[in-house]
Amino acid sequence: MTATLPDRDTSSTRVARRHRLAERGIDRQLLLLAPALICVLALFVYPFAYGIGLSFQPAEGGVFGAYRAFFTDAYQRDTIATTLGLALPAAILNVAASVPIAYRMRGRFRGKRVLTTILVVPITLGTVLTAEGLLNYLGPTGWFNRTLMTIGLTDEPVRLTNNYWGVFFSLVITGFPFAFLLILSYLSGIDPTLDRAAATLGAGWWQRFHRITLPLLAPGLATTFCLTFVLAFSVFPSAVLVGDPAGTTRVISIAAYHAAYEVYDYPLGSAIAVIMGLVELAVVAVVLGLRSLLYTGSTGGKG
């Protein structure tokens, strides 16, 4: 009896410790995280850190040499403004155009699935196919210009490709479905009874929209804006294919590509990539900061 007691004590403390750890979420199930963790570390964290490290090791100019080179060269520095000039309007348009369409489509009606599919198809096409289509359709000898000239609206083709507008259209075509889908799901998360309650209180459709639906949707709009903005900011293929990559659409990703793979200045390429990330972060931080001022709680609906 006396001999077994200490034994039992140690075993009970061991059980107790395991119990205490499990209560804090530490148990053997944590091992399930290992494969994902290894992938994230090996494929994301390490290359990311390596890139940042690389950006601080330029051939000349000290630790911040690559950054100094970027910001002192107006041709490089202006890519930030060029990219923002494309990505911000495109993201705003995508969000703004999605809201009325999603609002109209928030209920149930026949053919909703077909319509949603049509609106979402551009996501699956990819930027290159979209760019090819744009070149053929909006180009100087494309249908669009030929139609304009046939009906006598213009005497010479309107230039809509290989400039700012080509890239802008491409960003809208690929970004809109994404924004639309997100906003549609945010909208269906708002309890439709709220709209009806507002109606019985004497609010017309516009008042119901801007006093009830819009405030409840606004946090979702902010999130959607951030995501479409980040997508548009890293534009590369369409800036080259339907843009003017040497001039008006020389976006920041082109600058990074040029530095890294045409000049073989890896530190500068990495520095530009880091700057690109920081600009994105800054915009996202501003938008999410504004979002935190809004009501972000339950919106009554499901989803």
Binding site: D191, T193, L194, R196, A197, A198, A199, T200, L201, G202, A203, G204, I212, P215, L216, L294, Y295, G297, S298, T299, G300
Partner: peptide, 20 residues
């Protein structure tokens, strides 16, 4: 007439209070 012009008050089962 649409609901907003009937001038009736309504109490919903889920209350439908504006959460914001």
């Amino acid at each position: 007439l649409p609901p907003e012009r009937r001038g009736f008050g309504m109490v919903f089962q889920s209350y439908a209070l504006f959460p914001h």
